[in-house]
C-alpha cells in the first residue's frame, strides 16, 4: 500500500513536471519527434529494400539440364543427389514435354517450330529447377550440381546475379547502419535535452535530497516523465510516417518506375513502425532522464 502510494505520487509528480516546465518539455518532445521522423523514414526505406531483395532472391533459380539420353531411373537419382546437397531449399522437376508445352503456349513462333517434333524427337532437355537457401553461395552450389553424373549444363544467370546480390547486400547494410546511427543520435539528443531540462530542476532534486528522499524516490518521477515525453514525442512521427507512407504508396500505385520494384504494402509496415517508434521514444526518454538525474544525486 505504501509503495503504491509512493508510486502514485511520483506518477502525478511526473505529470505535473511535464506541465510545470512546459517550454522545456516541449523542446524535448520536438527533439524526440524530429529524430524519430528520421528513424521512421529509414525504417520504411530499409524495410522496402529488404523486401525487394528478398523477392528477387526468391525468384532466383538454378536450372539444371540433364543429358538427353537419360533414363527415368537416372532422373530420379540426380534429383535425390541434388536434394542431398547443402543449401538446397526446393527442387522441382520439369520434363522436356512440360517445357515444350509451356513454350508453345508462350508464343506463336515457338508453337510452329515445336509442332514438328513429337514426344520422342523432342530436342529439349529434362531439367530440374533448384532454389537455394543462401543466395550468396549460389555459385558454389551450382558448381557442386554440375559435378553430378548425367548433369549436362547448369545455369543460374552467373555474373549479373552475383553482381545484383552484392549490390543489394551493400544497400541493406547501409540501411541498417543508418537506422542504428539514427537511433544512437536520437538517444544522444534526447538524453542531452533532458539533461538541460533537469539542470533547471537541480534545485528541486537538491531539496528532495535534503528533506530525506531516497535516490530511487527522486528518480522515479523523472523516469516517468521521460516515458511521457518519449510517448508524446513519438505520436507525431508515428502518424506522419504511417499516413505519409500510405499516401506515397497510393500515389505511386505500389511500385517505383517498374513493376519489378514493388513497395511493401502499408498495412504490413504499420505495426512495426508504430511499435518501433513508440519503443525507441519511450525507452530512450526513460533512460535519458534516468541517467541525467544521476549527476545531481551527490548533494
Amino acid at each position: 500500500m505504501k509503495a503504491f502510494r509512493i508510486l502514485r505520487s511520483s506518477l502525478s509528480e511526473s505529470f505535473k513536471g511535464v506541465f510545470r516546465n512546459f517550454s522545456l518539455s516541449l523542446a524535448s518532445i520536438f527533439c524526440i519527434a524530429i529524430t524519430l521522423v528520421l528513424v521512421g523514414f529509414s525504417i520504411i526505406l530499409s524495410y522496402n529494400v529488404n523486401n525487394f531483395t528478398r523477392e528477387i532472391e526468391q525468384d532466383m533459380t538454378i536450372v539444371v539440364f540433364l543429358n538427353r539420353k537419360i533414363s527415368d531411373e537416372d532422373v530420379k537419382t540426380v534429383g535425390n543427389k541434388i536434394r542431398g546437397l547443402e543449401n538446397i531449399k526446393e527442387v522441382k522437376f520439369e520434363s522436356k514435354n512440360d517445357v515444350k508445352k509451356s513454350m508453345q503456349e508462350d508464343s506463336e513462333i515457338f508453337n510452329s517450330i515445336l509442332e514438328q517434333y513429337n514426344d520422342e524427337t523432342n530436342p529439349l532437355q529434362d531439367s530440374y529447377l533448384v532454389k537455394v537457401v543462401d543466395i550468396n553461395t549460389i555459385g558454389k552450389t551450382a558448381d557442386e550440381i554440375e559435378k553430378i553424373e548425367n548433369v549436362d549444363i547448369v545455369k543460374y544467370g552467373e555474373g549479373s546475379v552475383e553482381e545484383l546480390v552484392k549490390i543489394f547486400d551493400l544497400v541493406k547494410k547501409i540501411m541498417y547502419g543508418t537506422v542504428v546511427a539514427l537511433v544512437l543520435v536520437t538517444i544522444f539528443l534526447i538524453a542531452n535535452t533532458i539533461k538541460i531540462t533537469i539542470q533547471s530542476r537541480s534545485r528541486e532534486i537538491e531539496i528532495r535530497r535534503l528533506v530525506g528522499a531516497s535516490n530511487a524516490f527522486i528518480r522515479q518521477p523523472f523516469f516517468f516523465e521521460g516515458i511521457i515525453l518519449g510517448f508524446l514525442g513519438s505520436i507525431v512521427p508515428i502518424i506522419g510516417c504511417c499516413f505519409g507512407y500510405r499516401y506515397l504508396y497510393d500515389r505511386l500505385g505500389g511500385q517505383i518506375f517498374t513493376a519489378i520494384i514493388k513497395l511493401v504494402h502499408p498495412s504490413d509496415i504499420t505495426f512495426i513502425l508504430v511499435l518501433g517508434l513508440l519503443a525507441i521514444g519511450v525507452i530512450v526518454g526513460a533512460f535519458g532522464s534516468y541517467r541525467a538525474v544521476r549527476k545531481y544525486l551527490k548533494i
Binding site: A3, I6, R208, V211, A213
Partner: peptide, 10 residues
C-alpha cells in the same frame, strides 16, 4: 507537504 510525500503516507 513535499517533505512528507517521500514517506508514502495517506
Amino acid at each position: 507537504a513535499f517533505a512528507l510525500e517521500i514517506y508514502g503516507l495517506r
